[in-house]
Each structure stands twice: as C-alpha cells, then as structure tokens.
Design a binder for these strands. Structure first.
Length: 437
RNA sequence: GGAGAGAUGGCUGAGUGGUCGAUAGCGGCGCUUUGCUAAAGCGUUGUAGGUGUAAAAGCCUACCGGGGGUUCGAAUCCCCCUCUCUCCGCCA
C-alpha cells in the first residue's frame, strides 16, 4: 500500500543546495522579497551538520570496503581472516549507529531545504500584499458593457442551466450540474480553448486525473497543500487540482534531448479543489467551485529562453480573452503575492460587469529550475554533455467557469438572452444562449 | 480478485555471498585506415552526493525496480511493496 518512502523525502530538494552554501545572502534576500518567515540560519546549520556526518559515514564505509578486498584474498576460516571479521564487526556496529544518525539529520535537512522558496526574478516588483501587484496591462473598455449586466447568479433562469441545488444534493456545495445550453457552452469553451492551444503549437494530452503522492510532491502540492486535494481512501491517489500536476510529471526522472526543447503541451482536465477555508462572498455562483474545467498550457524550455517563453505563454492566454472579446487586465505579481515556487508570475483577470469585479482566469508562471529539480527533469547539454535542469512554465488557457461568468454578465441582452462572442458561435451552434431551456 | 514468471547501465543480456559499478553484444562518441560512403581496427562511454578547483582533473561514497532485514561483507539470501508479462475470474 502507501509507503511513505515513495513520497516527498525521497525526491530531490527544490532549491540548489550549492546556491545556499555559496550565496546564502541571495536566499535571504528571496525570503525577504517574498515576505516569508523562515529561519535560514537553522537550515544552514543543519546543512553543515549533515555534511560532516555524511563525511564520517563515508569514511567508515571506505574502511569496510578496503577490508572487504583484503578478506577476499584471505583464506576463509584462517586465523587472519577470523581476526579481520572480529575487527570489522566493531566497524559494522559503528557504521549502523552513524548511519541512523545521518538519516535523522538528513530528514531534518531536507525539510529545511523544502522550506526554502524559489528566488524571485529581478523584474518582480517589491510588495507584500495583493494590492501591491502591478497592473501590467489592461485590455478592452469597461464602459461599453451591457447596462443590463447583473451578477450571473441573479440572471433569471440561471438555475436552469447551472443547477447548484441538485449538485449540492448529489455531491455537495461547489459541484454544480451544467444542464442543456449550460453544458453545451462549457463544451464549446473547452473545444475552443483546445483548438486555439493546438494552433499555438501545444500538443494536446489527455492525462490521468488522479496522481500518486510522488507526482503531487514533485509539483509542490505535497506536503504543504495536502488539505487542498481530494484523496482516495483505498489507493492514496489524489484528484488533480490542475492538469499541471500530471502534465509536469510526464517527464519526471527523465533526460530529454536538448534539440527537443522547447516542448509545448496542453491538457484539458476537470480540476478538483477542496478550497478549505475559503468561504464567503467570493464563492457565489461560478466564482469558486470544488470541481471545474480548465485547459492548462505547459512548457519545458531551455533556461536561456524561459523569460521570453513566459511572455509568449502569457500572450497565448491573453489571445483567448481577446478573441472572446472580454475586457481583462494583466497583473504582475509582487514578491509577497508571488507564490513559493514561482520566479515570476502574471495573473490574467477578466472583468465581470455584473459583479463589478475582476476574476482571475489564468496564472502564467515561470518556475525556472525549481520544479525541474524536484521532479528531476533535465536535458543533455550539447556542449558539456552533462544533464542540466530544464525550466518549466505553465499557465491556464483558460479556466472555464469564471470565463463563463464573465460572458454571461458582460453580454446579457435586454431580452434576457446572452449574445455569445462570435468565435464561440461555430462551437456553440447558435448566436444566443437562452436561460429558459 | 486468484495463480505463476519477471524487473540489472541508452538497449539486449550475463552474473546466485567477497577486488562487481558490474562480463559480453548493440547503440553513441573519438581516433586510425580510406577518393566519398560503407566496412574494419583501436579507444571511450551512466547518475547522484561529498570533497577539491578560478574552472577542471583527481579523490571518496552511494546507486543492479522501491523499502526493510540477515551478514565482517548483498545485484546475489530473507521479508514487505510497486510495476510488467502469462493464465483464470470479473467488468465498462
């Protein structure tokens, strides 16, 4: 069954230990910029202890190995042989003691290393709170939107297409049924997103929607965010909170050829999030669900081009909103709102005219080598012949329910129908969505 | 779910307690020979951690699906787990 050894502490650390040893001030600065509270000196001390204990164990093993060679040449049962056995018994005991000690230190050391965040890129603005994120760009006008706009859950007939009550009965809050034209619109959006991703060069993948502990660890859901995932009781698998998890793990523990980079992939999956602790105003209607549909865009790229690739990725996501004729803005996340594993992140927020608020529909991040180290995803560098970490990036393209909410609110007509963006018409089959069902 | 057989380096495949990080072949890389190609010959060829260095080299340790145990010593013996294959059962 589930073996703890399969999990996080068998995987690599996230931050390069050498970086910590050689430039602890860089790590210290990163912790400050991300407004985290981490005792770096404790980790440094652990690191020194770990290395000295490792040294001791390795020296003892060297003694064992040397004796082993000697004994191989001796006649078995001879006095010399027996004397050596007696001598080595003592060493063996010592090795076991020191190894146990080392294992304990190593466990603490890895936990310490895992607590260290990725370094934010120099272009990440200072700031502690979401209010200090920088509005990087705004697209589209908010003035031209429908005067009929109202919060999507207040639109007459909304419950016919998006049945939260029956979802709650059948499963629980946050698991709506999409019915009739509602279901059809979800399918149209997904189809549109996947087609656009394909045109932009992303290879479509349909991944497993349950992952094992090792995968969830490699992308950082474990051990910290365990409570945010749904876990199966019998097999200890996790329902994916995003396609990022299975997709990033596709190349886990692999070395890809340098010339295959960059690799672009996309995947649609339902996403499952327990959203423990987030109740209140944000959770009305389609704003925040336990299950929702999303297309995710993933890139594995050469380190030299990852920031260029981040811009391209953000453009790919932005283009979807442009084609859907939805006003949106791009936020450049400040250090304090950046996230533990990200080096740089943009959020795309769509304007929902009824609620009069911005809804996050995509988050485009460059993880540099942080995830790749944890997941051991590398490429073989042509010039050195050595394996090097790839850089990983991902972004939503896009999350369905909030896009849906924005379309409903922004495009509501005086007759109570919703005029669909023209790009969706071929997918949906008609120009207007009606709530009467 | 039941029974059996397996898991070794990029691949194939030896190795059943001791100089085994691991025979051999293939592939890859380099050199030689050659008008070019082919062929042949010779050499080389893993990953990680530590140490070392300006960077290397070097040195040390670990790694034979994963974990644990026996032993002075484990790829090799024992236990547990995972995965693959075959057969039976069940089932979209």
């Amino acid at each position: 069954m589930f073996n703890e050894r399969d999990s996080w502490f068998r995987l690599g650390v996230m931050l390069d230990p050498k970086l910590l040893r050689e430039s602890p001030e860089l790590v210290r600065a990163a912790i400050l910029k991300k407004h985290l509270n981490i005792d770096l000196d404790a980790v440094l001390t652990l690191d020194a202890t770990w290395r000295s204990q490792l040294h001791e164990v390795e020296n003892l093993r060297a003694v064992q190995k040397a004796a082993n060679s000697e004994m191989a040449a001796l006649k078995k049962g001879s006095p010399e042989f027996l004397a050596k056995v007696a001598e080595m018994k003592a060493v063996s005991v010592q090795v076991k003691e020191r190894e146990a000690q080392l294992a304990a230190t190593e466990l603490a050391w890895k936990q310490g290393m895992l607590s260290l965040p990725n370094l934010p890129h120099a272009s990440v603005p200072e700031g502690a709170t979401p209010e200090q994120n920088v509005v990087f760009a705004t697209h589209g006008s908010l003035e031209v939107l429908s005067p009929h706009a109202k919060s999507h859950w207040e639109i007459p007939g909304f419950d016919n297409l998006f049945d939260f009550a029956r979802g709650a009965k059948v499963t629980g809050a946050g698991f709506p049924f999409y019915v009739g034209e509602g279901a059809r619109l979800v399918r149209a959006l997904l189809h549109f997103f996947l087609d656009e991703a394909g045109k932009a060069g992303y290879l479509e993948v349909a991944p497993p929607i349950f992952v094992n502990a090792a995968s969830a660890t490699a992308t950082g859901q474990l051990p910290d965010k365990e409570g945010q995932m749904y876990e199966t009781s019998g097999d200890h698998l996790y329902a994916v909170p995003t396609a990022e998890v299975p997709l990033t793990n596709f190349f886990r523990d692999e070395i890809v050829a340098e010339e295959t980079l960059p690799i672009y992939r996309c995947a649609y999956t339902p996403c499952f999030r327990r959203e423990a602790g987030s109740y209140g105003k944000d959770v009305r209607g389609l704003n925040r669900l336990h299950q929702f549909d999303k297309v995710e865009l993933l890139k594995w790229v050469h380190p030299s081009s990852s920031y260029q690739e981040l811009d391209l990725l953000r453009n790919d996501a932005e283009n979807l909103l442009k084609k859907l004729e939805l006003p949106y803005r791009v936020l450049l996340m400040c250090g304090g709102d950046l996230g533990f594993a990200q080096a740089k992140k943009y959020d795309l927020e769509v304007w929902a005219a009824g609620q009069k608020r911005w809804l996050e529909v995509s988050s485009c991040s460059n993880f540099e080598g942080f995830q790749a180290r944890r997941a051991q995803i590398r490429y073989r560098a042509k010039d050195s012949g050595k394996p090097e970490l790839v850089h990983t990036l991902n972004g939503s393209g896009l999350a369905v329910p909030r896009v849906l909410a924005a379309i409903l609110e922004n495009n509501l007509q005086s007759d109570g129908r919703v005029k669909l963006p023209s790009v969706l018409v071929p997918y949906f089959g008609r120009e207007f969505l009606s709530f009467s069902n």
